[in-house]
Simulated scan of single mutants.
Amino acid sequence: MSPAIDRLIELAARNVEFVTSRTVKAWPKSRVLDRPSSASDAEDAAAEARKLIGLAPAKPALSLSTEVAKLGLFTFSFDMGADAADAASILLEEGGVAIVNGSLRVGRRRLALAHELGHYLFADEYNIDWRISEHQNDDVWEARLDRFGRALLLPQHGLKADLSCLKAEGSDLRTTAIKLASGYQVDMSTLARRLVELELIDQKDAGFIRSVRTTKADIIEHNLVVPQELEAPHLPDPYVKGILTLYRNAVVSAARATDLLFDTWSEDDLPEVPQLPESSIWKFVS
């Protein structure tokens, strides 16, 4: 059980429904994909999900939390500690909500979101996920979702092309791993497993890649991107903009706005609005 993530996703679901019901005029239609029954099906589903997000077949899935919001999945990240679940998701009457444990490293946070996107697109109503990516048997549903997540973040054609290019440049295995992990914003364990399942490396090289750690020197010398996606606390932009709209239109008070923002903002952070007469207090929605 994970009471912390249970409480958070229930609260986030209520808040998202409150905000979007008052601000979203044209909600994107949820697209339900066929549930994959094999690893190959999971690969196909990931390719279809990338199309829905608007990604080219070989393009890295960067800014994933922004992209999935276009499909109606609102993603939050809160630091819940190492002992909490990795992520959770819930379907709403329209759209859905995902919670990612912000205490995970960035690559694991992104993989967790990719996994929850699978739950969302396959219409799983409510899920709490622990130790994402540790499932080994492709016959298990959660393992197929892990495969979906890896394929979403590390598309086969793009990864093969980039690996070939780095080999042609004469990059050694460590440099290759560092550049690929940075370019696709994944952790080394996810990269190693993806390369193995695509039969691009053997288990020995995979073990080496899992041991690689990117240093500050690597970041400078190789001009690497330092990803920060879903760094806690993270609230989805459309949700925050909706709250600001409600506040500017005097639908919610400053106190209610900061409450909806999970107290990640103070009242001083809110935009200035014209002073309302006292009689307007009854217009606020509690």
Score class of each variant (00 low, 15 high):
257 A>I: 11
112 A>I: 07
259 D>Y: 15
79 D>A: 14
5 I>L: 15
165 C>D: 07
163 L>F: 06
195 L>H: 09
106 V>A: 08
267 E>R: 09
243 I>Y: 06
140 V>Q: 11
200 L>S: 10
278 E>R: 05
192 A>G: 06
253 S>K: 08
238 P>I: 03
274 P>R: 05
82 A>S: 13
73 L>M: 07
190 T>D: 13
71 L>D: 09
184 Y>G: 11
201 I>A: 05
17 E>H: 00
17 E>M: 08
164 S>Y: 02
120 Y>M: 11
201 I>T: 04
211 S>C: 04
214 T>R: 14
76 F>K: 02
210 R>E: 14
168 A>L: 05
162 D>G: 11
221 E>K: 08
223 N>A: 10
249 N>S: 12
225 V>T: 12
161 A>Q: 12
7 R>G: 07
17 E>Q: 08
215 T>Y: 05
165 C>A: 13
77 S>V: 02
77 S>C: 02
61 A>V: 01
249 N>H: 10
283 K>Y: 07
100 V>N: 01
155 P>R: 03
273 V>F: 10
53 I>Y: 03
254 A>K: 13
105 R>T: 13
23 T>M: 07
190 T>F: 01
122 F>Y: 09
161 A>L: 09
277 P>M: 04
187 D>Y: 06
110 R>V: 15
64 L>E: 09
31 R>D: 13
37 S>H: 03
9 I>K: 02
23 T>G: 07
140 V>M: 11
266 S>E: 10
